[in-house]
C-alpha cells in the first residue's frame, strides 16, 4: 500500500428525494450484523420520519457537542423511554389457543411498548391540505473525520482506519464505560448489556474490502445511496459532494466532519387559504437549514435548476446521476472481488 492510498475516506451520499421509508436498509443491516440478544434494540442503520423525535428519541439533544462544536456532557439514552426495547411477542399463547373457538388471540407485544425505532413514522408536521409534510432520513454512523466517540474513549478502544476512514470499536479493549455513547451527537454507538461492550456500524467493512458496497446501500430499492471515496474525482461521491455541491452533511455544526452526506429533500408548494399553490415549499427551508446548515439553500437551488433543465428536455449530468439508471454506478469501490447481494 502506498502512502497515497492510505488516509483515504470512504463516504456515502443519500438522496432524500428518493427515500420511500421502506426500511429495507434497516433490515439488511440488522439481519447481517445485529442479531445478538444484547443488541435487539440497536439499529446501526435506521430510517426516521422528519420532522420527528427520531431514534433514540430526541437524539439531537443528548449528544456531547454544542451547536458551536464544543464538548458538552451528553447522556446515555434509556432503553425503554428513548430507544425502545426490542418487542417480544405472545407466540406461545397464540399457538396454544389456535384451535379454540372463533375468537383468535391477537399476536401482540408482551410488554406495553413506550417507544421504538420508528415510533412516529409518517406523522410529520403541518395541516392538511395546506402544509402537511414529512420526509424520511436514513441514518447510520457518519464515520466522522474527527469522531467524538474516539475522542471520548479513555481505553483507546476506538480507531479510525487510515486506509478508508472507517471507525471501529475494538471490543477486546472496550470496558463498556459508554463515554462513546454519551459523546456521539448522532447517537450511533450502542451498548450491548449482555456482552458489556459497545457496538456500532462498521460500514460493512468485510464487504468494502472486497469492493462490495455496504448492505444498506446495496439493498436499497430506491437506489438512493451512493458509496465511494471522497477523493475519487471520477466517482459519484466527488461529483455530488464537491462538483455539484448538492450533498451535505447532517448537523455540520457539531464540527465532527461527518462522512455521510444527504441530498436535501425538495417539496411541493404550500397551499394558501384558497387552496392555491404558493411560492413556499412545504418543508420549511429553515427546518432543512437546521439539519444541513446554510449550504442547503445553494443545494436546493442547484437541484431546482437541474430539474428545470430536464423538464425543458436538456441534458443534466446531475439528474442522470441521481436517477441512477444503472445502480451499479452508484458504487465506486474499486474492483469487486466477489459477487454478493
Amino acid at each position: 500500500m502506498t502512502a497515497t492510498e492510505t488516509n483515504r475516506q470512504i463516504a456515502m451520499v443519500l438522496d432524500l428525494n428518493k427515500c420511500i421509508g421502506c426500511q429495507t436498509c434497516t433490515v439488511a443491516c440488522k439481519k447481517l450484523w445485529n442479531k445478538d440478544t444484547g443488541t435487539g434494540y440497536a439499529y446501526w442503520n435506521n430510517v426516521e420520519t422528519l420532522p420527528g423525535a427520531g431514534y433514540p428519541r430526541n437524539w439531537t439533544e443528548t449528544g456531547g457537542r454544542t451547536d458551536q462544536g464544543e464538548v458538552k456532557a451528553g447522556s446515555v439514552p434509556n432503553l425503554d423511554e428513548d430507544y425502545g426495547r426490542a418487542w417480544t411477542f405472545n407466540h406461545d399463547e397464540v399457538r396454544a389457543r389456535a384451535g379454540e373457538g372463533e375468537q383468535k388471540p391477537w399476536l401482540r407485544p408482551k410488554e406495553k411498548p413506550k417507544w421504538g425505532a420508528n415510533w412516529d413514522e409518517d406523522r410529520g408536521e403541518g395541516s392538511y391540505p395546506q402544509d402537511n409534510h414529512y420526509f424520511y432520513l436514513p441514518r447510520l454512523c457518519n464515520h466522522c473525520t474527527h469522531p467524538a466517540c474516539l475522542d471520548a474513549c479513555p481505553r483507546h478502544a476506538i480507531e479510525k482506519r487510515d486506509e478508508d476512514g472507517i471507525v471501529l470499536v475494538d471490543q477486546d479493549r472496550c470496558h463498556g464505560y459508554r463515554f462513546c455513547v454519551e459523546s456521539c451527537p448522532y447517537k450511533k454507538v450502542y451498548f450491548d448489556p449482555q456482552r458489556q461492550v459497545t457496538t456500532k456500524c462498521i460500514f460493512c467493512l468485510p464487504r468494502v474490502e472486497e469492493g462490495v458496497a455496504p448492505a444498506c446501500a446495496r439493498q436499497c430499492p430506491g437506489r438512493l445511496r451512493f458509496v465511494g471515496y471522497l477523493d475519487d474525482e471520477a466517482g459519484p461521491i466527488w461529483k455530488l459532494v464537491h462538483e455539484f455541491a448538492v450533498a451535505l452533511p447532517l448537523h455540520p455544526e457539531f464540527d465532527l466532519g461527518p462522512n455521510v452526506y444527504y441530498v436535501p429533500p425538495m417539496s411541493p408548494p404550500k397551499l394558501d387559504a384558497q387552496g392555491r399553490p404558493t411560492d413556499e415549499p412545504r418543508i420549511p427551508t429553515a427546518y432543512l437549514e437546521s439539519l444541513f446548515g446554510k449550504q442547503v439553500h445553494g443545494a436546493l437551488r442547484i437541484l431546482e435548476l437541474e430539474r428545470a433543465k430536464r423538464r425543458r428536455g436538456e441534458a443534466s449530468e446531475l439528474m442522470d446521476l441521481l436517477i441512477a439508471y444503472d445502480w451499479n454506478e452508484n458504487f465506486a469501490l474499486g474492483e469487486r472481488k466477489r459477487e454478493v447481494l
Partner: peptide
C-alpha cells in the same frame, strides 16, 4: 488526567 478530550471537559 483522563485520556481523550471528552471526559476531561464533560466532567
Amino acid at each position: 488526567l483522563s485520556p481523550g478530550g471528552y471526559v476531561k471537559k464533560a466532567f
